[in-house]
């Protein structure tokens, strides 16, 4: 940052500490692009926007903690770095929680109780298929057992319609 802008920023910060609100916008306009590009180097585009916004809020909320006479930018970027790190940890924790939830579900499904429940559901589906027409049953047999990637659009539509009718029957008979 050039010397004049740096001095301008320091003066704005000192004025803000004294309560001069007119210094806020000029200081913000200088800092906004700097903080944004700093955060963009550490985070994804969406996260970097959040981090930049939180950083600037914290900077102006804690302006009384800024040591007048020291350079502004290192202080601001230290807050930015902290916000980026916090956001990154939060994202990582959220991803870990999702992984744990999925793993928990997989483990439950593979448990004896999970297996028994799945078996019962499958029995119900096969029984429901008995209520469908021959055409629908044929289409679903291909879906369940053949797993062919059918190129024909009509065949795909038949399978889709058969599945929808099967869902309605299952809901009517077993409530799920």
């Amino acid at each position: 940052m050039e010397e004049t802008r740096r001095r301008e920023l320091e003066r704005d910060f000192q004025r803000l500490q004294g309560g001069d609100r007119s210094a806020l916008e000029p200081a913000f306009r200088i800092l906004f692009p700097i903080v944004r590009s700093f955060a963009a180097r550490l985070l994804s585009p969406a996260e970097s926007e959040d981090a930049a916004q939180l950083t600037l809020e914290k900077v102006f909320a804690r302006i009384d903690q800024y040591d007048a006479g020291r350079p502004v930018l290192p202080w601001v970027l230290a807050i930015a770095e902290w916000e980026c790190r916090t956001l990154r940890q939060r994202t990582r924790r959220r991803k870990e929680d999702t992984d744990v939830t999925l793993e928990k579900k997989r483990t439950e499904d593979e448990s004896p109780e999970g297996n028994a429940a799945r078996h019962e559901e499958l029995q119900q589906v096969f029984q429901a298929m008995g209520e469908l027409s021959e055409t629908d049953r044929l289409a679903l047999r291909e879906f369940f057992f053949d797993h062919d990637e059918v190129a024909d659009a009509n065949a795909r539509k038949r399978k889709q319609r058969a599945l929808e009718r099967l869902r309605l029957v299952v809901r009517r008979l077993y409530g799920w």
Binding site: R21, Q53, F60, R62
Partner: peptide, 12 residues
Amino acid sequence: DLGRAKNAYERA
């Protein structure tokens, strides 16, 4: 963001 920064400043 400027609006939020101003609010944060005034709140503090």
